[in-house]
Amino acid sequence: MCGRMAMTVPPEAMAQVFGAAPANSLPEGPNYNICPTNRIAVITGGENRPRQMEAMRWGLIPHWYKKPNDGPLLINARAETVLDKPAFRSAVHTRRALVVASGFYEWTKDAEGGRDPWYITRRDGAPLAFAGLWQSWTDPANEEELRTVAALTIAANTPMQAIHHRMPVIVEQPDFGLWLGEQGKGAAALMRAAGDDILQWHRVDRKVNSNRASGPELIEPWEPDNDS
């Protein structure tokens, strides 16, 4: 599961890391508390199409929805079943993307049932690239087009199971082109859990439990004497 993310640098700077041209109207950054339905930075590309970073709504809207809330909020897609689900079946073949983040959050519960947040990043300090699927949706009321995206998840690797039983599908830099469709077929092989040594994490303050919280302090290591 991936339900909250952070982007600690401006999206335009992140676009350079991925060799992508930044589109107009990218989401403002940094943003330390990116929530579902927010506009997020996504890398698109493909055979004979240059890489571009653009903004998409986090939460894929299937083309048959009459309104964005006509059905479940599809912020994630399970990699194990994505080929069987009507909402994702076409996108996994023709509309793959990279969802870009500096880190993401997961939660555990304490003995009293309180939700303890953890901030998760790559050990090597590189940005995270999640395998994503996108869908263009047109609002029947005004014919306005909206690009929407979901991140793929997979069963967690052994270390990550201490926090959550699911994790995002993380695409490594040499495989960016394959996932985006720049290098022919074979992208299905990338829908797997990351290696055990890829990620690291630390506890952060419970302030991030609120989707209204903001600021760089949200990703700072939590100390017992300043719990909220």
Rank of each mutant, 00 (worst) to 15 (best):
Q52E: 13
I61M: 11
N76L: 02
V92K: 08
R89K: 01
N69Y: 14
E47S: 14
T44N: 07
R49S: 15
R95N: 11
I40M: 00
L73T: 07
K66S: 15
G59H: 04
R49E: 13
N76H: 05
V82L: 14
N76M: 06
I43M: 11
M53V: 10
R89M: 07
Y65I: 13
D84W: 00
T44I: 06
I40R: 02
L98E: 05
E47L: 13
L73Q: 00
D70T: 11
R78T: 08
K66I: 15
R51H: 13
K67L: 07
L73E: 08
L83E: 05
L74Y: 07
E54H: 09
M53F: 09
L73F: 07
R51D: 03
T44G: 10
G59M: 00
H93F: 12
W58N: 00
G59F: 02
A87P: 01
Q52T: 15
R78M: 08
L60N: 05
N48C: 09
T44L: 05
E54N: 13
S90E: 02
N76P: 03
T94G: 12
V82A: 15
I61Y: 05
P86L: 11
P68Y: 09
T94K: 12
K85Y: 11
P72F: 10
K85P: 03
V42A: 01
I61S: 08
N69M: 14
A91C: 14
G71D: 03
I40T: 08
P62L: 13
P50T: 06
K67M: 06
R89P: 08
P72S: 10
L60S: 11
